[in-house]
Write a protein that binds this DNA or RNA. Sequence first.
DNA 1: GGCATCCGTATACATAGGTAAAGAAATCAG
DNA 2: CTGATTTCTTTACCTATGTATACGGATGCC
Lengths: 193, 193
Amino acid sequence: MPMEALHHFLHRLTPIAPATWDKVHPLFTEARFEKGANYIREGQLAREIGFLEQGVMRAYYRNAAGQEYNKHFFTAPCFIGGYASLITGQPNVIQQEALTDCTVLSAPYAPFRALFDSCPDLERAARILAEQFFVAKEQREIEIVQLDAEERYRLFRERYPELEASIPQYHIASYLGVTPTQLSRIRRKSAGR
Amino acid sequence: MPMEALHHFLHRLTPIAPATWDKVHPLFTEARFEKGANYIREGQLAREIGFLEQGVMRAYYRNAAGQEYNKHFFTAPCFIGGYASLITGQPNVIQQEALTDCTVLSAPYAPFRALFDSCPDLERAARILAEQFFVAKEQREIEIVQLDAEERYRLFRERYPELEASIPQYHIASYLGVTPTQLSRIRRKSAGR
DNA sequence: GGCATCCGTATACATAGGTAAAGAAATCAG
DNA sequence: CTGATTTCTTTACCTATGTATACGGATGCC
């Protein structure tokens, strides 16, 4: 089956009728993004929903001073894209960049969402996905506020054991909300263990 | 119409068929919570979904050391309840406390969610609600990480102009992620303006 | 009115983490 | 291999904010 990973991912959210899948999958087309390429850019309206088949991406926010904050690391398989912009119709404030060579399935969001009317199972998948996104965000909020950088680093290593060795440390520092300097101090301190 | 505010709130998310509303509203019962009362407690499974008709509540997280972090202020009308716990089935880690006398419509979540099967419009409302929750969380994450406490205070005052005068400042400090001491310093500094 | 409690503010000190700059190490291009 | 570039670490110094504590004003109870 083509787009096996996407089909499987949706199915784990909720059972998807074959008739629904027949309408969904033709919307998606495959594209490659080389390491360093941007999937979405800030300032534009998001119009596509993406599914990361292979690779690692980062979603980041860049403030007026040009400083970047790594909001999230996407590791395949998962949905990507400017979700908040898709939902609100406001210009996107998040950028997403390939940290490795990536394969992405991409679909225009308007016809995808239009399928919700005739495919309640697809809308259910979207509901569950949004709920999971919310839960993840809530958990991250508590981690940011309650844990210090050292504990957040420990959690990061547990959660993304493969990532640490494969991406630059300044990206990790940015995800943790500290400078590379501080991450280096933390690493030195915990090196004994 | 009874439960007018709830009906109106749902309708603003997406049109709700009369037949759907006829199944939804009997699930809800009204309850009063006096200032200081808890709506949900940590450590238990959330089983109810609530709708705040009147009043102000705070959602807070309490860590092992007993320190509290005010995650959110609910101002009627809005949904309340241990949303993450309802979704994941994991024990609730958030508490919600009435900051003023409150009126709440409460429904058991299991039969509410069961209506999604026969009422796609209700599932759509739930999807849109979850999406809005996610967008709000994403925005708050960026505020926490990108803004310093002084700017977050300025934002808080813009966003909840009535709240500042009506709740203790230590609750505001906790929402901002600083101590009352620090909020006091910030207030002194910006008093000139 | 008088007392107790709670809350906001102030002060002194401690600490996590930022900034800047430089050196060390690793990676990459030719 | 070699030089250039990028990344990681270290150091010195500085700032924001936490902790602990004390004080004073408000509020409420008797």
